[in-house]
Protein backbone atom coordinates (compact mmCIF):
# COMPACT_ATOMS: atom_id res chain seq x y z
CA UNK A 1 0.00 0.00 0.00
CA UNK A 2 2.66 2.45 1.14
CA UNK A 3 6.22 1.74 0.09
CA UNK A 4 9.08 3.94 1.16
CA UNK A 5 12.55 3.22 -0.11
CA UNK A 6 15.83 4.67 1.05
CA UNK A 7 14.51 8.04 2.07
CA UNK A 8 16.96 10.70 3.03
CA UNK A 9 16.05 14.14 4.29
CA UNK A 10 18.69 16.64 5.34
CA UNK A 11 17.87 19.97 6.91
CA UNK A 12 20.38 22.80 6.78
CA UNK A 13 20.05 25.36 9.51
CA UNK A 14 20.78 29.06 9.10
CA UNK A 15 24.51 28.71 9.62
CA UNK A 16 24.81 25.90 7.09
CA UNK A 17 25.10 23.06 9.60
CA UNK A 18 23.44 19.97 8.16
CA UNK A 19 21.11 17.77 10.13
CA UNK A 20 20.12 14.38 8.77
CA UNK A 21 16.52 14.01 9.89
CA UNK A 22 15.86 10.87 7.83
CA UNK A 23 18.74 8.55 7.17
CA UNK A 24 18.06 5.85 4.61
CA UNK A 25 14.55 4.95 5.74
CA UNK A 26 12.76 2.07 4.05
CA UNK A 27 9.33 0.88 5.08
CA UNK A 28 6.64 -1.33 3.60
CA UNK A 29 3.12 -0.83 4.89
CA UNK A 30 0.28 -3.20 4.04
CA UNK A 31 -3.27 -2.04 3.56
CA UNK A 32 -5.04 -2.13 6.93
CA UNK A 33 -1.81 -1.89 8.90
CA UNK A 34 -1.97 0.29 11.99
CA UNK A 35 1.63 1.17 12.79
CA UNK A 36 2.65 3.02 15.93
CA UNK A 37 5.90 4.98 15.78
CA UNK A 38 8.01 5.75 18.84
CA UNK A 39 11.40 7.32 19.43
CA UNK A 40 13.03 10.09 21.39
CA UNK A 41 12.68 13.77 20.55
CA UNK A 42 14.35 14.67 17.29
CA UNK A 43 14.40 11.06 16.08
CA UNK A 44 12.73 12.11 12.82
CA UNK A 45 9.19 10.84 13.44
CA UNK A 46 7.42 14.05 12.44
CA UNK A 47 9.76 14.49 9.50
CA UNK A 48 8.85 11.01 8.27
CA UNK A 49 5.14 11.84 8.35
CA UNK A 50 5.82 15.21 6.76
CA UNK A 51 7.70 13.79 3.80
CA UNK A 52 5.02 11.15 3.29
CA UNK A 53 2.41 13.93 3.27
CA UNK A 54 4.54 16.04 0.94
CA UNK A 55 5.25 18.95 3.27
CA UNK A 56 8.94 18.55 2.55
CA UNK A 57 10.69 17.28 -0.55
CA UNK A 58 13.06 14.40 0.04
CA UNK A 59 16.74 14.50 -0.84
CA UNK A 60 16.87 10.85 -1.86
CA UNK A 61 14.50 7.94 -2.09
CA UNK A 62 10.97 7.30 -3.26
CA UNK A 63 7.48 7.16 -1.84
CA UNK A 64 4.85 4.96 -3.48
CA UNK A 65 1.21 4.83 -2.51
CA UNK A 66 -0.99 2.15 -4.10
CA UNK A 67 1.42 1.69 -6.96
CA UNK A 68 1.74 5.41 -7.70
CA UNK A 69 5.02 7.22 -7.24
CA UNK A 70 4.02 10.28 -5.21
CA UNK A 71 7.56 11.42 -4.39
CA UNK A 72 7.20 14.62 -6.40
CA UNK A 73 3.51 15.29 -5.91
CA UNK A 74 2.74 18.53 -4.08
CA UNK A 75 1.26 18.31 -0.61
CA UNK A 76 -2.23 19.43 -1.59
CA UNK A 77 -2.46 16.70 -4.21
CA UNK A 78 -1.41 13.95 -1.82
CA UNK A 79 -3.95 15.30 0.64
CA UNK A 80 -6.63 13.89 -1.65
CA UNK A 81 -5.90 10.47 -0.18
CA UNK A 82 -4.02 11.26 3.04
CA UNK A 83 -5.72 12.39 6.25
CA UNK A 84 -3.70 14.03 9.01
CA UNK A 85 -4.06 15.00 12.65
CA UNK A 86 -1.38 17.05 14.35
CA UNK A 87 -0.32 17.48 17.95
CA UNK A 88 -1.60 21.04 18.14
CA UNK A 89 -5.42 21.01 18.07
CA UNK A 90 -5.37 24.50 16.52
CA UNK A 91 -3.65 23.33 13.32
CA UNK A 92 -6.30 20.95 12.06
CA UNK A 93 -9.27 23.28 11.83
CA UNK A 94 -10.07 26.79 10.59
CA UNK A 95 -11.13 28.71 13.70
CA UNK A 96 -13.18 31.44 12.05
CA UNK A 97 -15.24 28.94 10.09
CA UNK A 98 -18.13 26.89 11.41
CA UNK A 99 -18.09 23.20 12.30
CA UNK A 100 -20.10 22.30 9.21
CA UNK A 101 -17.87 24.42 6.96
CA UNK A 102 -14.77 22.71 8.29
CA UNK A 103 -16.31 19.27 7.79
CA UNK A 104 -17.43 20.18 4.28
CA UNK A 105 -13.89 21.18 3.27
CA UNK A 106 -12.52 17.94 4.65
CA UNK A 107 -15.19 15.87 2.93
CA UNK A 108 -14.31 17.37 -0.45
CA UNK A 109 -10.62 16.69 -0.13
CA UNK A 110 -10.62 14.48 -3.17
CA UNK A 111 -13.00 16.40 -5.40
CA UNK A 112 -12.69 19.41 -7.60
CA UNK A 113 -14.06 22.53 -5.96
CA UNK A 114 -16.70 24.54 -7.77
CA UNK A 115 -19.23 27.30 -7.32
CA UNK A 116 -21.90 25.10 -5.81
CA UNK A 117 -22.92 25.76 -2.20
CA UNK A 118 -20.23 24.62 0.20
CA UNK A 119 -22.70 22.93 2.54
CA UNK A 120 -25.98 21.37 1.42
CA UNK A 121 -28.81 20.15 3.67
CA UNK A 122 -27.79 16.60 2.77
CA UNK A 123 -24.24 17.25 3.97
CA UNK A 124 -25.69 18.64 7.16
CA UNK A 125 -27.60 15.52 8.07
CA UNK A 126 -24.55 13.40 7.32
CA UNK A 127 -22.40 15.67 9.54
CA UNK A 128 -24.95 15.38 12.33
CA UNK A 129 -24.76 11.59 12.22
CA UNK A 130 -20.98 11.57 12.18
CA UNK A 131 -20.67 14.11 14.98
CA UNK A 132 -23.15 12.21 17.13
CA UNK A 133 -20.70 9.30 17.14
CA UNK A 134 -18.18 11.53 18.94
CA UNK A 135 -20.61 11.90 21.83
CA UNK A 136 -19.58 15.51 22.43
CA UNK A 137 -22.83 17.20 21.53
CA UNK A 138 -21.24 18.88 18.51
CA UNK A 139 -24.08 17.67 16.28
CA UNK A 140 -26.23 20.48 17.69
CA UNK A 141 -23.60 23.15 17.10
CA UNK A 142 -23.02 22.80 13.35
CA UNK A 143 -23.10 26.54 12.72
CA UNK A 144 -20.84 27.65 15.51
CA UNK A 145 -17.30 28.78 14.69
CA UNK A 146 -14.72 26.15 15.57
CA UNK A 147 -12.81 28.78 17.55
CA UNK A 148 -15.42 28.40 20.28
CA UNK A 149 -14.57 24.72 20.87
CA UNK A 150 -12.16 23.34 23.46
CA UNK A 151 -8.86 21.76 22.42
CA UNK A 152 -10.26 18.26 22.89
CA UNK A 153 -13.38 19.04 20.88
CA UNK A 154 -11.28 20.54 18.11
CA UNK A 155 -9.03 17.49 18.06
CA UNK A 156 -12.03 15.16 17.86
CA UNK A 157 -13.36 17.24 15.00
CA UNK A 158 -9.96 17.14 13.28
CA UNK A 159 -9.92 13.37 13.60
CA UNK A 160 -13.35 13.19 12.04
CA UNK A 161 -12.22 15.54 9.26
CA UNK A 162 -9.10 13.49 8.59
CA UNK A 163 -11.15 10.30 8.18
CA UNK A 164 -14.41 11.56 6.70
CA UNK A 165 -13.47 10.75 3.12
CA UNK A 166 -11.92 7.36 3.93
CA UNK A 167 -8.32 8.29 3.14
CA UNK A 168 -5.91 5.65 1.92
CA UNK A 169 -3.56 6.68 4.67
CA UNK A 170 -4.11 8.32 8.05
CA UNK A 171 -1.13 10.10 9.62
CA UNK A 172 -1.37 10.91 13.33
CA UNK A 173 1.45 12.89 14.93
CA UNK A 174 1.19 12.72 18.73
CA UNK A 175 -2.39 13.78 18.32
CA UNK A 176 -3.26 13.11 21.96
CA UNK A 177 -0.11 14.60 23.50
CA UNK A 178 -1.28 18.19 23.90
CA UNK A 179 -4.52 17.24 25.62
CA UNK A 180 -5.21 16.58 29.27
CA UNK A 181 -4.97 12.84 30.12
CA UNK A 182 -8.70 12.23 30.17
CA UNK A 183 -9.33 13.99 26.88
CA UNK A 184 -6.29 12.30 25.38
CA UNK A 185 -7.74 8.95 26.40
CA UNK A 186 -11.05 9.86 24.80
CA UNK A 187 -9.38 10.87 21.51
CA UNK A 188 -7.36 7.64 21.62
CA UNK A 189 -10.47 5.51 21.99
CA UNK A 190 -12.16 7.46 19.24
CA UNK A 191 -9.17 6.85 17.00
CA UNK A 192 -9.36 3.12 17.54
CA UNK A 193 -13.08 3.09 16.94
CA UNK A 194 -12.89 5.03 13.68
CA UNK A 195 -9.87 3.14 12.37
CA UNK A 196 -11.45 -0.24 13.10
CA UNK A 197 -14.82 0.59 11.61
CA UNK A 198 -13.29 1.93 8.38
CA UNK A 199 -10.30 -0.44 8.17
CA UNK A 200 -7.95 2.47 7.60
CA UNK A 201 -4.19 2.25 7.13
CA UNK A 202 -2.55 4.29 9.85
CA UNK A 203 0.82 5.64 10.93
CA UNK A 204 0.58 6.99 14.47
CA UNK A 205 3.44 8.72 16.25
CA UNK A 206 3.13 8.58 20.02
CA UNK A 207 5.21 9.44 23.05
CA UNK A 208 3.31 6.99 25.17
CA UNK A 209 4.97 3.57 24.98
CA UNK A 210 1.97 1.87 26.53
CA UNK A 211 -0.24 3.37 23.86
CA UNK A 212 2.29 2.31 21.23
CA UNK A 213 1.88 -1.33 22.24
CA UNK A 214 -1.86 -1.22 22.86
CA UNK A 215 -2.73 0.43 19.57
CA UNK A 216 -2.33 -1.09 16.15
CA UNK A 217 -0.64 -4.25 14.95
CA UNK A 218 2.94 -3.12 14.47
CA UNK A 219 5.38 -0.79 16.21
CA UNK A 220 8.49 0.82 14.78
CA UNK A 221 11.07 2.65 16.80
CA UNK A 222 13.14 5.47 15.35
CA UNK A 223 16.39 7.01 16.49
CA UNK A 224 18.62 9.56 14.78
CA UNK A 225 16.73 9.35 11.54
CA UNK A 226 16.76 5.58 11.32
CA UNK A 227 14.30 2.80 12.00
CA UNK A 228 16.01 0.75 14.69
CA UNK A 229 13.24 -1.66 15.65
CA UNK A 230 10.30 -3.08 13.77
CA UNK A 231 7.97 -5.16 15.91
CA UNK A 232 5.01 -7.01 14.49
CA UNK A 233 2.22 -9.00 16.02
CA UNK A 234 2.17 -11.67 17.34
CA UNK A 235 5.59 -11.18 19.01
CA UNK A 236 4.66 -7.57 19.71
CA UNK A 237 1.43 -8.55 21.42
CA UNK A 238 3.26 -10.12 24.34
CA UNK A 239 5.69 -7.24 24.86
CA UNK A 240 5.68 -4.88 27.80
CA UNK A 241 6.90 -1.32 28.01
CA UNK A 242 9.99 -2.53 29.83
CA UNK A 243 10.73 -4.97 27.03
CA UNK A 244 10.58 -2.04 24.62
CA UNK A 245 12.98 0.00 26.70
CA UNK A 246 15.34 -2.94 27.00
CA UNK A 247 15.25 -3.51 23.27
CA UNK A 248 16.07 0.12 22.64
CA UNK A 249 18.98 -0.08 25.05
CA UNK A 250 20.19 -3.26 23.41
CA UNK A 251 20.24 -1.63 19.99
CA UNK A 252 21.43 1.83 20.95
CA UNK A 253 23.38 1.27 24.14
CA UNK A 254 21.53 4.05 25.92
CA UNK A 255 18.24 4.55 27.75
CA UNK A 256 15.20 6.03 26.05
CA UNK A 257 14.98 8.69 28.68
CA UNK A 258 12.28 11.12 27.84
CA UNK A 259 9.70 8.42 27.29
CA UNK A 260 10.34 7.02 30.75
CA UNK A 261 9.50 10.39 32.14
CA UNK A 262 6.25 10.57 30.23
CA UNK A 263 5.22 7.12 31.38
CA UNK A 264 5.01 8.20 34.99
CA UNK A 265 2.07 10.54 34.44
Amino acid sequence: MLRISQLRKVFANGSGVEMTALDNISLEVKAGDFITIIGSNGAGKSTLLNVIAGVYDVDEGEIWIDGVNVTNQPEYRRAHFIGRVFQDPMIGTAASMTIEENLAMAMKRASRLGLTPGVTPRDRSRFRELLAVLGLGLEDRLQEPVGLLSGGQRQALTLLMATISNPKLLLLDEHTAALDPKTGEMIGELTNKIVKSRELTVLMVTHDLRQALEFGNRTIMMDQGQIILDLQDPERASMTVDDLLDQFEAVRGKRLLDDRVLLVR
Binding site: E75, Y76, A79, G83, M90, A94, M105, A106, R109, M161
Partner: peptide, 19 residues
Protein backbone atom coordinates in the same frame (compact mmCIF):
# COMPACT_ATOMS: atom_id res chain seq x y z
CA UNK B 1 -14.79 28.14 1.69
CA UNK B 2 -11.34 27.29 0.39
CA UNK B 3 -10.38 30.97 0.05
CA UNK B 4 -11.60 31.76 3.56
CA UNK B 5 -9.76 28.77 4.96
CA UNK B 6 -6.59 29.81 3.12
CA UNK B 7 -6.68 33.08 5.01
CA UNK B 8 -7.58 31.40 8.29
CA UNK B 9 -5.35 28.33 8.39
CA UNK B 10 -3.26 27.55 5.35
CA UNK B 11 -1.85 24.34 6.78
CA UNK B 12 -5.33 23.00 7.47
CA UNK B 13 -6.79 23.69 4.07
CA UNK B 14 -3.71 22.39 2.29
CA UNK B 15 -4.08 19.15 4.19
CA UNK B 16 -7.66 19.15 2.90
CA UNK B 17 -6.31 18.96 -0.63
CA UNK B 18 -6.60 22.61 -1.64
CA UNK B 19 -3.95 24.39 -3.67
Amino acid sequence: FAIRATGDNEQMIRSCGVN
